[in-house]
Design a protein around this nucleic acid. Structure first.
Length: 565
RNA sequence: GCGCCAGUAGCUCAAUUGGAUAGAGCAUCAGACUUCGGAUCUGAGGGCUAGGGGUUCGACUCCUCUCUGGCGCACCA
C-alpha cells in the first residue's frame, strides 16, 4: 500500500480543480500526532509565486479535494499547513486486505529495472577482515530489498584476484609443494610468510615477478597454481558468507581477472574517442574539476583498478543490461568513483539513463573511537569476529533463560549474527560506526533482540490461540489507529529505503512498529476471557500482521527470526 | 596546500530531504504487575543542533567564514 502516492494524487486533483498550478505534490508524515496522519506543506511555497495568501491557497485545495474514502479530515493550521487524518474504516479495511496478502500488500514495481549491486569484494590475497563487514552486510540487504520490490537484481562480487602480489603467492605455494593445503588454512600467515621470503630472498623475489608476467600471459602452470589459490581463498569467504547468512555464491563472483582481456581494448577505445592524454608517461583521462587525472595505463604498460572498473561498468551496462549500478564501497573511495563515473559517462559506457551510485559508508571504530583492531594492533579477522558474536550472544541470553545445549547453539547463532548485522544497518551508513558489543547485544533499545523478542512474544500468543484468524479489523482506540497506519506504511518505507539505499530507514521503522505494538499489547488484551470474540479476532489480526511485518523486514535485512527465544 | 565527509542531550543515534514545540534508546531519578512471555510498559529531568554571519513566512537541513575531527590527493587495490 503506497499511501503517500494516493494522497498525492488527491492533492494533485484538488489543485487541478482549483486551478492551482502544482507539480508533483508531496505529502509527508505528520510531525506530531495532533497534526493528524499526514501533512501537505506545499501551500506556503506556492504563496509567493501565486502572490496569494497561503491560507487561502490551502483553503482552496481543501475545498477542491475530490470525494474519497481515504481522508476523514483535512484541516488548515498555522501559516498554511494542511493536516490530513485518514479514515479509520479505510485503514481497517486496508489492514484486513494486507493481512490476507502474501506480500503484506506490498506491490511489485510495474517496470522492473536491472540493478547491479557490487558489494563485499574481498581481496583474495588475504583473509576477510572487519573492513569487509559493512560492505557485505549493507550490500546484501540492499540486494534483497531491490529484489523484493520487483527489480531484476544482479549481485556482483568483484573480488580482487589479480595483481602483482599473486606472483609472490603462487611462487610460494609452488615452493611448499605437497604440504601446501594446510598452510592455506590461514591466509594471513601464508601471506606474511610469502612476503618474508620475498623480502629476504632475491631469487625468490625474481621468480615472483616472473610469475606475475607468466600468469598474466596465460602460462598454464601458473594459472593452475593461481586457480588453486583462488579457490581456497574463495572458500574462506564462503565460510564467512554462510555464517553471515549472506546470499553471495560463486555465481555472483565476477573477478577482476575476468576483465583482463578487455583492458587493452578499453585503452584503445578511450583513445579513439579522443579522451586519452599522455601525462608523465602514463595514459590518463582528465576529468573536469579534478586536479589529478584518472590513470588508465601506467607508464610501464600495466593497468590499474580504474581500468578494470571501467571495463566492469561497460560489461554491466552492455551485457547485463544494468539501469542502476550500486557500489557498496567505503567512503574513502569517493574520489575514485567520482572520476571513474565521470569517465564512464564521457566514454558512453554508462548512458544518461543508467544510474551510477556510490553507496558509501564510514569506518568501523572501536568504543574509544579508534579504528577497530585486535589488542596487539592487527586486523580483526571477520570469521573470528562472528564467532565472538555467537559466544557473546550465548552469554547474553543465558542470563535470562535456561536452554539446553543444542537449542542454545542455534539461538545464539541467530541472535549473535543478527545483532552484528542489525547494529550496522541501524545507523546512517555515511557516518563512522562505533562497534560496541554491549550495546548491540542489549535487550533494550533499537536492537535486533528487541525485535526478535517482540516477534517471539507474538508467536507465543498465536500458538496459544488455536482457532482460525478470520474476522474483521475494527479500530477501537488511538493505539490501534496508529498501529494500523504504521503497518500500512511498510511499502512507502521500503521504497524510501531502496531509493536512498538506506537500510536504517527500515530499522527505524521496525523499532517504531515494535514499540507501538508493545504499547498496544500492554493496553489491549487479546486472549483474556473477557474479550469479545470479534474484538479478539481483530486484535489477533493486528498481532499476526505485526509479526509478519517484523519478519519480512528483518529477513530483507538478512536477519533471521525465531518463533521461540 | 587543495579537496571530500562529518560535528545534534553525559553516551550511542534519529529527524520523512526547507516545515509547526529537534525526537529515541542507554545511563540517572520516579512509577505500574496475583506477567495473554516483565527480555514489558508509564513518567521526569537533560539541547544556543561546534561557533559567527547570511538567504526567507520558516534553517539541524541551503550559502559563507571560522574551529575541531576523519579521510583522500597519478602510475597499490
Amino acid at each position: 500500500m503506497q499511501i503517500k502516492e494516493k494522497l498525492n494524487q488527491l492533492i494533485a486533483e484538488a489543485a487541478h480543480k482549483a486551478g492551482i498550478a502544482l507539480e508533483e505534490p508531496r505529502v509527508v508524515e505528520a510531525g506530531k500526532p495532533e497534526f493528524g496522519d499526514y501533512q501537505f506543506n506545499g501551500a506556503m511555497p506556492l504563496a509567493k509565486t501565486l502572490k496569494r495568501n497561503p491560507r487561502q491557497i490551502a483553503q482552496a485545495l481543501v475545498e477542491a479535494l475530490p470525494q474519497n474514502e481515504i481522508i476523514a479530515k483535512a484541516e488548515i493550521a498555522g501559516p498554511g499547513f494542511i493536516n490530513l487524518t485518514l479514515s479509520a474504516e479505510w485503514l481497517a479495511e486496508r489492514l484486513k486486505e494486507a493481512s490476507s496478502s502474501e506480500r503484506l500488500g506490498v506491490g511489485r514495481r510495474k517496470e522492473p529495472q536491472t540493478v547491479v549491486v557490487d558489494y563485499s569484494s574481498p581481496n583474495m590475497a588475504k583473509q576477510m577482515h572487519v573492513g569487509h563487514l559493512r560492505s557485505t552486510i549493507i550490500g546484501d540487504s540492499l540486494a534483497n530489498l531491490f529484489a523484493f520490490l520487483g527489480d531484476e537484481v544482479i549481485r556482483q562480487n568483484h573480488i580482487g584476484d589479480w595483481g602483482t602480489q599473486f606472483g609472490m603467492l603462487i611462487a610460494y605455494l609452488e615452493e611448499l609443494g605437497e604440504g601446501a593445503e594446510g598452510s592455506l588454512h590461514d591466509l594471513e600467515e601464508f601471506y606474511k610468510a610469502a612476503k618474508k621470503r620475498f623480502d629476504e630472498d632475491e631469487a625468490f623475489a625474481d621468480k615472483s615477478r616472473e610469475y606475475v608476467v607468466k600468469l598474466q600471459g596465460g602460462d598454464v602452470r601458473c594459472l593452475h597454481l593461481w586457480e588453486q589459490f583462488i579457490d581456497k581463498s574463495l572458500g574462506h569467504c564462503e565460510e564467512v558468507y554462510s555464517k553471515l547468512h549472506v546470499k553471495l555464491s560463486r555465481e555472483d563472483v565476477r573477478a577482476e581477472s575476468a576483465y583482463n582481456d578487455e583492458l587493452a581494448e578499453i585503452v584503445s577505445d578511450l583513445e579513439a574517442k579522443g579522451l586519452l592524454k599522455q601525462s608523465r608517461g602514463a595514459k590518463v583521462v582528465f576529468v573536469e574539476g579534478e586536479e589529478n587525472p584518472l590513470i588508465i595505463q601506467k607508464s610501464d604498460g600495466g593497468y590499474l583498478y580504474a581500468t578494470t572498473d571501467l571495463a566492469a561498468i561497460r560489461f554491466r551496462v552492455q551485457v547485463l543490461g544494468a539501469k542502476r549500478i550500486s557500489y557498496v564501497v567505503d567512503a574513502r573511495q569517493a574520489g575514485h568513483f567520482k572520476q571513474v563515473f565521470a569517465v564512464a559517462r564521457m566514454a558512453g559506457y554508462a548512458p544518461e539513463d543508467v544510474e551510477l551510485e556510490h553507496v558509501s559508508f564510514g569506518m568501523m571504530l572501536d568504543k574509544s573511537g579508534r579504528p577497530f583492531k585486535t589488542r596487539d594492533g592487527g586486523t580483526v579477522k571477520l570469521i573470528e569476529l562472528l564467532e565472538e558474536a555467537v559466544e557473546r550472544a550465548k552469554e547474553a541470553i543465558t542470563q535470562k533463560e535456561a536452554y539446553d545445549e543444542e537449542e542454545l547453539e542455534k539461538i545464539a547463532e541467530i541472535v549473535g549474527i543478527g545483532a552484528v548485522k542489525y547494529a550496522d544497518l541501524s545507523i546512517n551508513r555515511e557516518s563512522n560506526y562505533i562497534f560496541d558489543w554491549d550495546r548491540m547485544l542489549s535487550l533494550e533499545g533499537n536492537t535486533s533482540l528487541y525485535q526478535q523478542y517482540a516477534y517471539a512474544r507474538i508467536q507465543s500468543i498465536l500458538r496459544k490461540y488455536e482457532g482460525e484468524i478470520e474476522g474483521h479489523v475494527t479500530i477501537g482506540d488511538e493505539l490501534e489507529r496508529r498501529l494500523a497506519l504504521k503497518l500500512l506504511q511498510l511499502e512507502d518505507i521500503l521504497h524510501l529505503a531502496a531509493r536512498e539505499a538506506t537500510p536504517h530507514t527500515i530499522t527505524a521503522y521496525l523499532y517504531d512498529l515494535a514499540t507501538l505494538f508493545m504499547k498496544f499489547y500492554e493496553n489491549n488484551p487479546i486472549l483474556r476471557s473477557d474479550v469479545p470474540e470479534d474484538l479478539r479476532q481483530s486484535r489477533l489480526i493486528f498481532a499476526q500482521t505485526t509479526a509478519r511485518t517484523l519478519r519480512l523486514a528483518l529477513e530483507l535485512l538478512g536477519i533471521k527470526v525465531l518463533d521461540r527465544l
